[in-house]
Amino acid sequence: MSPKIDKAQAKKVAKLSRLDLTENEIEEFSAQLNAVLEYVEKMNELNTDDVQPLAHCLPVSNCFREDIVKESLGTEKTLANAPQTDNEFFKVPKILDDSAAT
């Protein structure tokens, strides 16, 4: 049987997951995930054509509240755990390419 997830696919999934995995991890995970996915295929024994998907077991509905301003965390607490800050901002590397701006 062809693998459910080969190394190339594992790399793609790692990219989607924003995980910079090592080659070793790609190798190890694709084998382990294959075993899990093959097991999961068990679900295909069941005909679920007429079954509704159940995302949540209790009836949940929108929760509304009055539109009243309440106390919030505030800038200082919000930034307290940030790896890098600049005054009242989170600091990240440049996102826009300079060359694209011209």
Partner: peptide, 11 residues
């Protein structure tokens, strides 16, 4: 996978 699992969850 995901949708199938939600249906099995209902069962």
């Amino acid at each position: 996978y995901y949708l199938k699992a939600l249906k099995v969850r209902n069962l």
